[in-house]
Write a protein that binds this DNA or RNA. Sequence first.
DNA 1: TTTGTTAGTACACCTTACGAACAAACCCTA
DNA 2: TAGGGTTTGTTCGTAAGGTGTACTAACAAA
Lengths: 382, 382
Amino acid sequence: MTRESFAGIRQLRPSRKLLPEHARGHNRSLVLQTLYRASGKSRADLARDTGLTRVTISDLIAELMLEGLVIELGQREGEARPGKPATLLDLKRDAFQIVGIDLSAFEIFRGALLSVDGEVLHSAEIPLAGSTGADATAKVFALAEELVAAATSPVLGIGVGSPGVVALDGTVLGAPNLGWRHEPLQTALSAHFDLPAVVANDANAAVLAEHSFGGSEGDLMLVKVGHGVGAGLLLGGSLLHGSRFAAGELGHVVVGTHGGPLCVCGKHGCLETWLATPRLDAALAEARSSGTPTEPILTEAGRHLGIALAPVIAALNLPEIVLSGPRELLDGALTDAAVDTLRNRTMAEIHGELSVRMTTLGEDIVVRGAAAMVLSKQLGVS
Amino acid sequence: MTRESFAGIRQLRPSRKLLPEHARGHNRSLVLQTLYRASGKSRADLARDTGLTRVTISDLIAELMLEGLVIELGQREGEARPGKPATLLDLKRDAFQIVGIDLSAFEIFRGALLSVDGEVLHSAEIPLAGSTGADATAKVFALAEELVAAATSPVLGIGVGSPGVVALDGTVLGAPNLGWRHEPLQTALSAHFDLPAVVANDANAAVLAEHSFGGSEGDLMLVKVGHGVGAGLLLGGSLLHGSRFAAGELGHVVVGTHGGPLCVCGKHGCLETWLATPRLDAALAEARSSGTPTEPILTEAGRHLGIALAPVIAALNLPEIVLSGPRELLDGALTDAAVDTLRNRTMAEIHGELSVRMTTLGEDIVVRGAAAMVLSKQLGVS
DNA sequence: TTTGTTAGTACACCTTACGAACAAACCCTA
DNA sequence: TAGGGTTTGTTCGTAAGGTGTACTAACAAA
């Protein structure tokens, strides 16, 4: 159990010099962010919101208008106030569109063209048909090609949520289902389309979507249940990657002490054996055919989820858990049992303020998260 | 389970304006940090290490020398090299001393005067004698007074590691054993001594000590076993506080599904019931008096620790766990069982690179962590 | 018409970091 | 011993970023 035993990539120490131009970029993003969240603000409003002076705001806005990112909407109307009427501003929200791609669905790659606000403008998908390795990569490029071609405005960038372990530079270090090992997807996409690209883990993309478009605060865990089980963690507003970029890989944690079903990984009682959709569907089908009630199966699954999450929630003091996956499986007895289990296994100070719920973003959560990654990288907006 | 159900303090959104002077402060800390880790560097060396120019480094060094924080050691000798000989620099390590205080021990407050390098120069302690509330606060002040008086150089600040939940501003929101509720210790200490003060949770202080003085990297969990069980989490080099500053409160997570011993909190099978030292000591004493072997008790404790930690380690992709507490209890069968359990309950990709060990800092870990907090706050050094 | 308020801009100034150029101090070589 | 090369650290001037002050523009209320 030494740390040299794994030939992974070491994260770089981020502490570097800070120049005035970095401050400028930060303040620029601050202005964009403020406008992104609430349009129809004046320069003076922005000054009050950001703490920068009106002069600086004017300077930044002039720069952003020159780049075509911000437009003037005209003068504020309605309320009669003394003083010079304010000139309202907004992001030019149709200046760009974003390509978002989800590689985490079963046997299909899904993609969408999205607005800057994260609305899906156009969807596309391509069946995987068992492709792995270079074939799978080719399908990603084909899907991206179609979506880039469908854009009616310049494309701000291409975001991808991929299963497996993804490094900070967008290299898929390992994705067994797709047969990828050390696949430099982000670099390749960026070079091929001559566009900015971001590749990240699917659950990480999903948690960003929930934060950006689902109204969640900055401390949040998103548990994604599908063919496997994974999670994305947002702590203090920023993604947790983990020392080897494998944070959130909860599927193969053993739950309970009774043994449990055999998992593909060779262990017994992994969280996936209780929660992954193929297992759950099979158990439910069998119950239905034999006439036994189905609810205990969902309750048991939820209970195991709760057992696995309790130490994580306590250790991180997490206020919010969001579930993503088939609503008919997750939303109901399963969630109820998870909540109940969490209540029984954590202090009141922890579970008292805990919110556990389904995502409201549905199946688009990963493509929208991919778009959020592009927004964050290109504009500093989230 | 709504988030409004707890009348806690809400963390502020950190996104604020960034001014050139903030950049200056960052670069200043960068220089201090570089010198702190390796003395005997020249201005040109620092320029190479930080990426700043020699001009900027000279400017920053001049400022730091004016403040008495940095001194010139004279010219580099030894190796014969071409060029003008370098003037070596160092932190003036005896310019300041630091007061560190540990409120987490049983029935005693421990404190120390420390050097900038984190060495204990002088120790002091004061028995708690059952004091709580204002009496306990007074004992903290008395201990601080003694240590400040013992200083032979100006005191850089006072650091305190306190049990319980501590807000970012150093207010102890709740510490049952000391009878504190919303105790503004940091503000009070700072005002009374006219010195900078930092108050944080004891386990958080400990994890910072392990990082600063124990040689750990920036991803680390420190589990502190004493009268209770708590943890400090360092993720990506920065402390995790949690949405209500209760991160690391692992003691009252239920472990196992068999019920287990009754805990003071009313639940059965909390981690503390397996691991806290009073329980362990009692169980061991009983085993010894009845002639039964003691090792199974330690093994069982370690197993429960492993069960509780497995989901956390997997979710965070943590590479390192450090244990702090009585070595005779933790170091041996207990740790071995924990490691074994973790190996059986997580993927090889997770536990393969995991290191689990005792701290090397012993009983001084919290006071040294408190000193590290002062260093970090006042000099930006860690 | 006067007064007071708000929005946005012009201008001078401060801070910060940089690049160019240079002197000092050392090595090595002819 | 003289000179070329190298490294260190400083001086000088410049560019970028942000602020404070003072100004104009535009409005409401009296």
